[in-house]
Lab assay of single mutants.
Amino acid sequence: CHSECLGNCSQPDDPTKCVACRNFYLDGRCVETCPPPYYHFQDWRCVNFSFCQDLHHKCKNSRRQGCHQYVIHNNKCIPECPSGYTMNSSNLLCTPCLGPCPKVCHLLEGEKTIDSVTSAQELRGCTVINGSLIINIRGGNNLAAELEANLGLIEEISGYLKIRRSYALVSLSFFRKLRLIRGETLEIGNYSFYALDNQNLRQLWDWSKHNLTITQGKLFFHYNPKLCLSEIHKMEEVSGTKGRQERNDIALKTNGDQASCENELLKFSYIRTSFDKILLRWEPYWPPDFRDLLGFMLFYKEAPYQNVTEFDGQDACGSNSWTVVDIDPPLRSNDPKSQNHPGWLMRGLKPWTQYAIFVKTLVTFSDERRTYGAKSDIIYVQTDATNPSVPLDPISVSNSSSQIILKWKPPSDPNGNITHYLVFWERQAEDSELFELDYCLKGLKLPSRTWSPPFESEDSQKHNQSEYEDSAGECCSCPKTDSQILKELEESSFRKTFEDYLHNVVFVPRKT
């Protein structure tokens, strides 16, 4: 048989008469490798580009789960590009990614509803959504962080984005990388972005840091009482949809009607710091009717980097990364020049730590249904340095008659930039024990000054392991946590139920 035959053949030295091919099969003959313009397919066939392209389009058009959109890589027609490569849609070739590779997620039936953290986790790592997304989240724990972890990498949506009755959302900033909504599939009414009845939605994105392009379709905003109209108009300008909307697409009466839409800028007039305090004062603000001013709200939190936005980490279910302080308005003076500047002394802060701070007014709604208010920009203030805590785990070892090696770990709280350490030492008198000992005694162990690591005695271990207080009263049991108490109650309830079950099964009433 021919060298490319495997198993047997019907005619000697003829690659077209093989029972099976050793390498690849091409047009009725066995070959060692697939010549151009053919590609290896499933490690035994040679196919042309049209064959591989037909497989790709067949799966793409069917949208069946589990099928493969075949691509070409290293002269092979394979189910998908290997790690580190992405497909070129024009020629199906796998090309190296520039940075992290995109991950295209194809949605069944063309859309997916995100109504819980669990459903959001199914899209973790996706960068391109081939379909439409509907966000409908009523509640949950730590929602802002969970949504950002699972949806934060999405850069492109081919269909539309719909935010509907998501009472738990305060902001859409968890879509931190969303840059493009194509609108290839539109919501009824030709809408590519749809926001309806979101009672706590206050911000779409921080438009000073976020760009969003909507290729096709219109915007729809109705019944978002805490979303200011200025935020919607800003989205029109940034996304390129200005002029597409009709009169009733953006409701003037049901958007922002319960919001404090600040239209003035508060400026800080005085800032002073110490290692654990920050004193702030800002310019006074009074609405047209000074009785509408209820006070100020001061927001602050630790910020290692200057990239904080107002609604980071917030949701309507209680999660809030900001510390909020309510401040009463100052006494009002008739003389504008003698107006008191409101302020606040922030206490209990960490030394040498940068804080993000902003302040906003708290006002009631005027009778004319106009909203007044003022808010400052987010500023960054760093507390002063102070003395560091003591170095940890000092170790001293003498390696000769004239040297001592000293080692330690950095302090747990540096409280500033540590530039150097101060080492103090003092000579001590020799131990009298060394002169009084009889060095001729056998088995004498000389006193040693070398360091030995501390260890816990058996008594201390027994005390720590004991669940009861000892007789001397030195140790006591740790208080039980809520989960331990709940577990004990469940076990007790189970024992009672099981005992009742045994009584009912074992003891049967005697027939009379």
Rank of each mutant, 00 (worst) to 15 (best):
K103V: 05
V104P: 03
V104G: 03
L107R: 06
E109V: 08
E111R: 09
K112L: 07
T113V: 04
D115L: 11
D115Y: 05
D115G: 14
D115A: 13
S116D: 14
T118P: 05
S119Q: 02
A120T: 12
Q121P: 05
Q121F: 09
L123A: 05
G125W: 05
G125V: 13
C126E: 00
T127W: 12
I129W: 04
N130E: 08
G131I: 00
G131M: 01
S132Q: 09
L133P: 01
L133Y: 01
L133F: 13
I134S: 12
I135L: 06
I135E: 00
G139Y: 04
G140E: 13
N142M: 13
A144C: 03
A144P: 03
E148R: 11
A149T: 08
A149M: 10
A149P: 09
A149D: 06
L151N: 00
L151Q: 00
L151W: 10
G152W: 04
L153C: 15
L153A: 12
L153M: 06
I154H: 00
I154M: 15
I154R: 00
E155M: 03
E155A: 05
E155I: 07
S158N: 06
G159W: 01
Y160F: 08
L161T: 03
K162M: 12
I163R: 01
R164M: 13
R165T: 12
A168V: 11
A168S: 00
L169M: 06
L169H: 03
S171G: 13
S173V: 10
F174A: 11
F174S: 12
F175L: 11
R176Q: 14
R179S: 09
I181H: 01
I181F: 01
E187I: 03
E187H: 07
E187K: 09
E187V: 06
I188Q: 08
G189W: 11
N190C: 03
N190L: 09
Y191V: 08
Y194M: 11
Y194R: 10
Y194A: 10
A195L: 10
L196G: 08
N198L: 04
N198M: 03
N198I: 01
L201C: 02
Q203H: 07
Q203Y: 12
L204G: 05
W205P: 01
W205S: 01
D206L: 10
W207T: 07
W207Q: 06
W207A: 05
W207C: 02
S208W: 07
K209N: 03
K209E: 08
H210V: 06
H210T: 03
N211Y: 12
N211M: 08
I214H: 02
Q216E: 03
G217P: 01
G217L: 01
K218A: 14
L219H: 08
F220Y: 08
H222V: 03
Y223D: 08
L227D: 00
C228M: 04
C228P: 01
C228I: 05
L229T: 05
L229D: 07
L229K: 08
E231Q: 15
I232T: 10
H233I: 12
M235R: 00
E236L: 12
E236T: 15
V238T: 08
V238L: 11
S239Q: 08
S239F: 03
G240R: 14
K242F: 06
K242Q: 15
G243T: 14
Q245M: 15
E246Y: 08
N248M: 08
D249Y: 08
I250S: 03
I250V: 15
L252Q: 10
L252Y: 10
L252H: 10
T254Q: 03
N255K: 02
N255Y: 03
N255P: 03
D257M: 09
A259R: 12
C261R: 02
C261F: 01
C261K: 01
N263P: 12
N263M: 10
N263V: 06
L266H: 01
K267Y: 15
S269P: 02
I271K: 15
T273P: 05
T273I: 07
T273L: 04
K277R: 11
I278Q: 00
I278L: 15
L280N: 00
W282C: 15
P284Q: 13
W286I: 04
W286R: 07
W286P: 12
P288E: 09
P288K: 04
D289R: 05
D289G: 09
F290D: 02
R291T: 09
R291D: 12
D292G: 04
D292F: 13
L294F: 12
F296K: 00
F296A: 11
L298W: 01
L298H: 01
L298V: 15
L298D: 01
F299S: 01
Y300W: 04
Y300L: 08
Y300T: 10
K301C: 03
E302Y: 08
A303R: 10
P304D: 05
P304T: 13
P304I: 06
Y305A: 07
N307A: 10
N307H: 15
E310V: 06
F311P: 12
G313D: 15
Q314Y: 02
A316Y: 13
C317F: 14
C317Y: 11
G318S: 15
S319N: 07
S319A: 07
S319T: 06
N320W: 14
S321A: 13
W322Q: 02
V324T: 12
V325T: 14
P329V: 04
P329L: 14
P330W: 14
L331R: 05
R332K: 06
S333C: 07
S333G: 11
P336Q: 11
K337L: 06
S338G: 05
S338E: 13
N340L: 11
H341F: 06
G343T: 04
G343I: 15
G343M: 12
W344G: 12
L345V: 08
M346A: 10
M346E: 02
R347C: 09
K350H: 11
P351G: 14
W352Y: 15
W352V: 05
T353L: 05
Q354W: 08
Q354I: 05
A356I: 02
A356L: 01
A356T: 02
I357G: 01
I357T: 05
F358M: 07
V359Q: 00
K360C: 14
T361Q: 07
L362I: 13
L362E: 11
F365A: 01
D367R: 05
D367A: 03
D367K: 04
R370S: 04
Y372L: 06
Y372A: 02
I378L: 10
I379T: 05
T383P: 00
T383N: 00
D384C: 10
P388A: 05
P388R: 01
P388S: 04
L392N: 08
D393L: 15
P394I: 06
I395S: 11
S398L: 04
S398F: 14
S398V: 07
N399P: 10
N399I: 04
S400L: 13
S400R: 06
S401Q: 13
S401I: 15
S401F: 05
Q403K: 12
I404M: 05
I404L: 03
I404V: 08
K407M: 14
W408V: 03
K409P: 03
P410E: 07
